[in-house]
Amino acid sequence: MTQMKAIGFHQHLPITEANSLIDLEIERPVAQGHDLLVEIKAVSVNPVDTKVRAHGADETEPKVIGYDAAGIVVEVGDHASLFSVGDEVYYAGAINRPGSNSDFQLVDERIVAKKPQRLAFSEAAALPLTTLTAYEALTDRLQLTFDAKSNLDKTMLIIGAAGGVGSIATQLANKAGLTVIGTASRPETIEWAKTHGAHHTINHHEDFRAQLEQLGYHYVDYIFCLNATDQHFDAMVDVIAPQGKICSIVETDQNLNLSALQQKSATFVWEFMFTRSLFQTADMIRQHEILTQVATWFEEETLETTVTQTLIGLNADNLKEAHRLVESGKTIGKVVVERR
């Protein structure tokens, strides 16, 4: 039985606790079926990592999380046909399987793509989860295309434009031809949002309507909510255009008044990037296709990686620091942990 290093936990604890993330030795898995065994080179931390770590019942076996990853294929399952040993890949993994915070990880090839060659592993690891989330939201949920000419008279409000998903969503919405209005409240986040594709910014701590009207917009055609769905819901109802569409990725334990959207015949839809892998949907391979498509855009330099901070050494101490940074709610772009 071959062992490997991993970082995980037995109890769901605050990141300030010593045992919130611990260094482990666990069994190295073997690729079968549609799986690839990937040697991890870099991972990034997303809000979902911190939420899964902090909430839940005690684990009988050590739980290893981590979703974003970039690495090298070292084994290929007997039903896998898209990749070969030695391929450099990137992916966002599955929420119901052991994660990427380890030396090696099993992942279904249908949610994996070859990483953009011009990007380092650390740059590529920042991208999959946020890119898939933003791309699926725009295309599968809001029914947009990347035919820029068809969207030139359309507007999109992105709430939380400087975070991980926002940093990609602003770029993709811009690429789709939309007029992009991002929310940001600090000089550095305003600059980041505009650098990454927002044509305008407004402050999410202030009245949406007044700020939009100052920019010359009474309504917006699309809203992509990446922060505090319940807090912003009434404002979204107010500024969404008749027959407009709202997509959110942020869960809420509040009851949302969907009837408020009825007179406008407006759409409210959720985006959860793990849906396809969690339910093994018939179109699961679409995530392979999306990541392959956006890899060409990164190669062409029409999209840019969103990594802003890289910690060297895939260990419990560095992952704790990455979790702490993400939980602060003040991060711009993405935090990456690179394996030595």
Rank of each mutant, 00 (worst) to 15 (best):
Q263F: 14
K154R: 14
I332P: 01
S100N: 05
A80N: 05
P98E: 05
F83A: 07
R141P: 08
I249D: 00
L256R: 01
N46F: 04
G163E: 02
S84L: 12
F224I: 14
N203K: 07
R340G: 09
D58R: 13
P98G: 07
L325Q: 09
I332M: 00
N96T: 10
I290L: 11
T252E: 13
E136K: 07
V307R: 10
E109W: 05
L142W: 11
R28K: 15
T139H: 14
A193Q: 04
S150A: 13
V165E: 01
P98S: 07
Y135S: 10
H288T: 07
A282S: 15
L127K: 00
K114H: 12
I190V: 14
A42C: 03
V45D: 04
T183E: 03
E88M: 11
V45K: 03
I65W: 00
I223N: 06
E191L: 15
T267L: 14
E59T: 03
A241Q: 15
A137E: 09
T302A: 11
V326L: 01
P62Q: 03
V30D: 09
F272T: 12
Q143E: 15
G197W: 02
E206G: 00
K264I: 08
K194S: 08
S84Q: 14
L127H: 00
D253K: 09
T130Y: 09
E299S: 11
D140N: 13
A57L: 11
V165M: 04
E289W: 09
E300P: 04
A69Q: 05
Q293T: 13
G164R: 03
E299R: 10
N96M: 04
S20W: 05
D253M: 05
I65T: 08
T145P: 10
L129W: 07
T302P: 06
V52A: 11
A18G: 01
L303Q: 02
N96P: 02
L311C: 06
L311V: 08
D108H: 07
H79Q: 15
S102R: 03
R141F: 11
V107A: 02
A295H: 02
P14R: 01
S328E: 12
V107Y: 00
D140Q: 13
L138E: 03
C225L: 10
A126Y: 07
I22E: 06
I159K: 01
T267R: 13
D140V: 05
G182S: 04
T296K: 13
G33H: 10
T133H: 01
P98W: 03
H218Y: 10
I181V: 13
H204T: 01
V107R: 00
H204V: 09
E206A: 14
A210L: 13
D140P: 09
F272P: 05
P116G: 05
V239K: 00
F224A: 08
L157G: 02
P128C: 10
F272R: 13
Y222R: 06
